[in-house]
């Protein structure tokens, strides 16, 4: 068996992974303590005929101290976790990088992803945009660049899921949702649809192809040439 999370290729994915290990630490700790506290009394206070149980009822701070201590530890773990994750959340969802290197539109439809690349003028939403609309197509992006994606849907809700980037975003009809990523490792990765979208939901798969810059430019010029024809 390999490592728990799949390979990470994005700049911010590492923060998500370390968040996972932070939470796991808390969860395992809390679980171990609680299970111990659950199992120990089963042996220590086994039933004896005629013995009376203690009359502690949890009234007042003194008797409740262990419960409150547990809650306090829980609260501390919670707040540490919220504190630790917030900067990643701001980076991934609330803001876009200052420098925008490449902008592409991903549109969900039943049942494939449509990728719209900017045309030779390097601007999106103009007449010369190149639209790739077929099943099993791939999204080509340059490595090491800030890539902005506009996520849209035509018919029903879809959800674009790049598991190696740790990014997932629903595509909602009528809305354009903008997210970004920066991938560092060239290769071919899967893009899935994570929101049920009809009969062929399971077949809605595309590839994310990360290429070095010159290779990517070659791909783009081939794409433009293909459109000219």
């Amino acid at each position: 068996m390999k490592q728990i999370l799949p390979e990470n290729i994005s700049t911010y994915g590492g923060e998500v992974d370390s968040l996972f290990f932070t939470i796991t630490l808390f969860v395992v700790l809390a679980f171990a303590i609680s299970i111990a506290a659950l199992i120990i009394p089963l042996f220590r206070y086994r039933y004896k005929e005629g013995r009376k149980s203690s009359r502690v009822r949890g009234i007042g701070m003194k008797q409740m101290r262990w419960v409150f201590a547990g809650m306090l530890v829980m609260a501390l773990c919670d707040f540490y976790m919220l504190y630790a994750e917030h900067s990643t959340w701001v980076k991934m969802e609330e803001t876009l990088p200052e420098q925008e290197d490449f902008h592409v539109v991903i549109t969900g439809r039943q049942w494939n992803w449509i990728f719209t690349y900017p045309g030779p003028d390097n601007k999106l939403y103009t007449a010369d945009d190149v639209i790739v609309n077929r099943m099993n197509s791939s999204l080509h992006v340059p490595a090491g660049k800030n890539i902005i994606i506009d996520i849209k849907a035509i018919d029903v809700i879809h959800s674009v899921f790049f598991k190696n980037i740790r990014l997932k975003q629903d595509a909602i009809p009528g809305r354009t949702i903008t997210r970004w990523f920066n991938v560092t490792k060239p290769g071919k990765y899967e893009i899935a649809c994570a929101e049920i979208c009809g009969v062929l939901h399971s077949k809605m798969r595309s590839y994310l192809v990360v290429q070095e810059e010159d290779e990517f430019n070659r791909f783009l010029s081939e794409l433009y040439a293909e459109k000219q024809k």
């Binding site: 809390a30 009394p41 089963l42 004896k48 262990w66 829980m74």
Partner: peptide, 17 residues
Amino acid sequence: AGIMLSYIATLWGGNIQ
């Protein structure tokens, strides 16, 4: 967490069947 801990605390000092 408080509720679950209270349940577990009920076990302590009991006479468990």
